[in-house]
């Protein structure tokens, strides 16, 4: 069922998503080859997070289609979720459970085995090994984000979806995150991330996609070289979402 030879790791075709009268994604097309780190940049409200939520199967597009390694999201959600790991805005952790209990719980949902070893391994990887037996509510936002990252990595997904992963992280943790992303790239897996630290995003990415008004306005396969044109296209102050035309 998993199409290992799929041409694109992520493919979105004519995605439209509205929230009430507000059009967030307006016929977005995107194709991301496997083994690349892609950074999505754009002002607030351009639809970056919405696109990631659609790809993570948390929300449905109003129209259009999307697939992950050739598997249609609408047809096989559980399989797609098994192939993706997502760290979105909220850490999505149970604050009255310890870090270990949270990771054990999610490992059970992901039907993982050797859970104790996995937890130790990924806790070391994201730097939370000293806090494994602390309740999540006692952790800072940055630590919670690291736990969320460990949860997203535990099942070793082929595609990592990261929504502003650096928010709340200190410089050391951002460095760790960069190493992790590098490791992902070198193992042939795919990362799609949004960021507001555009300069940094362009440094680590193989591909940059600029969203404005819910569509892709620029795509670059050498973001470090195309920095000037990407930054010119990306304008945080630009009005991005639009009210849909009201039909009579």
């Amino acid at each position: 069922m998993v199409t290992t030879a799929a041409r694109f790791a992520i493919e979105a075709r004519s995605i439209i998503k509205n929230f009430g009268d507000t059009a967030v994604l307006r016929g977005l097309d995107l194709s991301i080859p496997p083994g690349e780190v892609t950074v999505l940049v754009g002002a607030n409200g351009t639809g970056k997070s919405t696109l990631l939520r659609i790809l993570a199967t948390l929300t449905k597009a109003d129209s259009g289609s999307a697939s992950v390694v050739g598997i249609d999201l609408a047809e096989n959600g559980p399989l797609v979720r098994g192939l993706t790991g997502s760290v979105l805005h909220a850490p999505m952790l149970y604050s009255d459970m310890t870090v270990r209990e949270n990771l054990m719980f999610f490992a059970a949902l992901y039907r993982l085995s050797n859970v104790d070893d996995l937890i130790e391994r990924f806790a070391n990887k994201v730097g939370i090994e000293s806090r494994l037996d602390d309740r999540v509510r006692t952790l800072s936002h940055g630590f919670q984000k690291r736990v969320a990252l460990a949860r997203a990595l535990m099942h070793e997904p082929r595609i990592l979806l990261l929504d502003e992963p650096e928010s709340g992280l200190d410089a050391v943790s951002v460095g760790r995150l960069d190493d992790l992303i590098d490791e992902y790239r070198s193992s042939g897996r795919t990362v799609l991330m949004t960021t507001h630290v555009v300069e940094h995003g362009l440094e680590i990415a193989d591909r940059a996609v600029v969203l404005t008004g819910g569509v892709v306005v620029l795509e670059s396969t050498s973001p470090a070289l195309d920095r000037a044109s990407i930054l010119a296209e990306y304008s945080p102050t630009r009005e991005s979402t639009t009210k849909r035309d009201r039909r009579p």
Binding site: A56, T57, L58, G77, P78, L79, V80, R81, G82, S86, L88, A90, P91, M92, L93, Y94, S95, F106, L109, Y110, R111, R151, H155
Partner: peptide
């Protein structure tokens, strides 16, 4: 409140 419902929804299980 903790957005944990979305955490459950991210798991590769039927809803």
């Amino acid at each position: 409140e903790g957005n944990t419902l979305e955490g459950l929804m991210l798991a590769p299980i039927s809803r």
